[in-house]
């Protein structure tokens, strides 16, 4: 079992342009982050909110995940090459080639431990959580700062195409972080990611044994009808709904988990799907 010791939420639904985060970051941290792009600023903002006033041990690991990474920089580089025959700026090139966001988060929090950027075709947040869960259980890490960062880009049609979502999908952006630890003392909640994808029959078996008042939440990949069907089949469960609105982004499950911590006491099962199988994460904050 692993424990959540803190959470940080940054979640917005831009309409026309990316919000200017540099000023918000300066207000919050008192620092100016040169040579950073929107994606990096998003990452620092969320991580800063999760760390709060804590001084984290230097060896704290950073596991950063995202569906598309710094897609606005990559798109800009492609545009500059195709339309203007321009070379990439060195800073853009470095940020493109590596997990620079993780580097800047590490610099901001003075951390020199393991620092990963990982992703997955369907479940980036859950797979990053699984990697952290393994390292904490093995004792390879004592503390992991795990963040999901996805940015909104103005070229909405392009973004929807790449994400494979319908033209009516409202996209959002987020930087949601959890401070994870293998120790229970002072923890806010337990969290567990089921390491294997579940078939519909295995999911049904699991949900049928869910204790009364277990909250369920379904990822954006479920439509209303599917969610209603689940809730009818498992009347002992109730549907959790975050108070804060959010658009579609691929690391959204971390927003949901953090929102539950902020709003509720109890047990939550987060259910996501790749269209065929299911991935679940359970969180409980009523027994600590």
């Amino acid at each position: 079992m692993i424990f959540i010791h803190a959470a940080g939420i940054h979640n917005t639904m831009p309409r026309e342009r990316q919000p200017d985060l540099a000023e918000e970051l300066h207000t919050l941290t008192g620092k100016i982050y040169r040579r950073t792009d929107h994606f990096i600023q998003l990452a620092i903002l969320g991580a800063h909110k999760a760390a709060g006033t804590r001084e984290l041990p230097a060896q704290t690991a950073i596991y950063l995940t995202s569906g598309q990474g710094n897609i606005s920089v990559f798109t800009r580089i492609c545009e500059q090459r195709r339309q203007h025959n321009l070379l990439p700026k060195p800073v853009d090139f470095i940020n493109l080639l590596s997990n620079s966001a993780g580097f800047y988060v590490a610099s901001h929090l003075a951390l020199d431990g393991k620092n990963l950027f990982v992703t997955h075709h369907h479940f980036p947040a859950q797979m990053a959580l699984l990697a952290a869960q393994n390292d904490l259980r093995l004792g390879r890490q004592k503390m992991v700062l795990l963040g999901g960062v996805d940015e909104w880009i103005p070229r909405q049609e392009l973004a929807r195409k790449l994400l494979g979502v319908s033209p009516s999908t409202q996209l959002g952006e987020g930087s949601n972080w959890l401070l994870l630890n293998s120790e229970e003392k002072n923890a806010l909640a337990t969290v567990e990611v089921h390491p294997q994808l579940l078939s519909s029959s295995l999911l049904a078996a699991l949900l049928s044994y869910a204790p009364r008042n277990t909250s369920l939440i379904f990822s954006h990949r479920f439509d209303r009808e599917a969610v209603s069907g689940f809730m009818r089949r498992y009347p002992q469960c109730r549907l959790f709904s975050p108070e804060e609105d959010s658009g579609y982004y691929e690391t959204h499950p971390l927003f949901t988990l953090s929102s539950f911590l902020r709003q509720e006491k109890g047990r939550l099962i987060h259910i996501d799907t790749d269209g065929n199988q299911y991935m679940i994460v359970t969180l409980a904050n009523d027994l600590l």
Binding site: S66, G67, Q68, G69, I71, T75, C78, E79, R82, Q83, T119, H120, H121, H122, P124, R155, E157, L158, K161, L162, L163, G164, E250
Partner: peptide, 18 residues
């Protein structure tokens, strides 16, 4: 898309990380 072309249905319906 930058060139004004339609990439059509993408393999796996989505591209990007993973």
């Amino acid at each position: 898309i930058i060139d004004g072309l339609d990439p059509g249905k993408l393999p796996g319906n989505r591209v990007g990380g993973g």
